[in-house]
Design a protein around this nucleic acid. Structure first.
Lengths: 193, 193
DNA sequence: CGATTCTTTGAAAACAGTCAATCTGTGTGG
DNA sequence: CCACACAGATTGACTGTTTTCAAAGAATCG
């Protein structure tokens, strides 16, 4: 299973086999049940969590108790609350598994230690953060400039592997529109193709 | 003027006077006229630009030719297109000065060189990126979960120094609502206080 | 002062949200 | 294997918000 992570890591940076072994030795593998919560709001997020397989979502409740999906995480991606992690403060968010999943987990201490020992891993970390930031900028543009229908189509085209695996009402929440509206949009969209 | 940058930098990391002098020597100071464009879409953004004083906005045209303000930059902050900078690709964005401004500019080469020579500067860069990412996550939450009125109030409370310096129609664009709606919301809001 | 930019207003239209009911598929336990 | 519960998706009718369009009113600047 760890070869999934290996492939992911090596697609971004060059890593020696010895360093990879160090990184491997520093993590634990865990399986997560569907519907299991791995971050509860009020707790501090202190780990790095790579999704080898499965599906998660990060969401937050607003003042009316409605939950809003901020992000999804599927195979070969990471799931985290960076704000809680960086500042060691209580999280406003929840992370739950949408399907049975397998993850690799490094504690913050271990990950920091590994980054200090392995420059390429630090570089990898920087690349991921930069890419995440770029993606969030593109998302902000679509949120402020697209109609509901355009948001739907863009999401479907950009993240088809997510789109096909998560319930529609969570997609709606992610896009900031109601589930009924999204249902109607989809109906229209499938009609014309 | 450079002491503005010095203060900004030292509020985040410890820097020796010698290193600060190196950083100072690596930059050029420029004054920008109001309405001047410092990034034109289609060009590559190759610099780091610290705003010592003044005001900028980063915006993008959609397919209908409507411009959307992605971000503002005021005194003591940076303005950039990270995606263009990181990947050395043509930018989809424009950056223009909303007021006469003074900036300090480092080329990408110089900044990279300085970060390699001065670990604290690299650390500073990482902190900024992490904070930018955190801010973008909070913004996404407000975009998907707030009503137009809530977005307006949050922006006013979170960035009063920006709110009071930029035209209302650009705030509307930033929040993803029409200028007319924002005008009406503001009218109602000022009535009840 | 004239020109430009920015803001406001009103009326109509488009759009999206809400509510409530129904439908569908899946999985569980008797 | 069936009945049932449950999560998810859909639909219609209605409501409410937001946009659009057009015009006019401020404010700012050379």
């Amino acid at each position: 299973m760890f070869e999934i992570f290996e492939k992911h890591l090596r697609s971004h940076v060059a890593i020696s086999d010895e360093d990879l072994e160090l990184i491997h030795a520093g993590c634990v593998k865990r399986t997560i049940r569907k519907r299991q919560t791995i971050l509860q709001d009020g707790d501090v997020w202190r780990i790095n969590c790579f999704i080898a397989s499965g599906c998660f979502r990060l969401f937050r409740f607003d003042n009316d108790g409605i939950d809003h999906t901020l992000r999804f995480g599927v195979d070969n991606w990471w799931i985290s609350d960076q704000e809680s992690y960086n500042n060691e403060k209580r999280s406003d968010y929840n992370i739950e598994a949408l399907a049975a999943s397998t993850v690799f987990i490094w504690t913050k201490e271990k990950w920091t230690e590994l980054m200090e020992a392995i420059p390429a891993l630090k570089r990898f970390n920087e690349i991921l953060l930069a890419k995440s930031y770029e993606a969030s900028q593109r998302r902000i543009f679509s949120l402020i400039s697209f109609s509901a229908e355009e948001k739907y189509k863009e999401f479907q085209n950009t993240y088809p592997n997510v789109f096909n695996r998560v319930p529609l009402h969570m997609v709606a929440s992610y896009l900031g529109i109601s589930r009924e509206t999204l249902s109607r949009i989809r109906k229209e969209a499938t009609k014309h193709q």
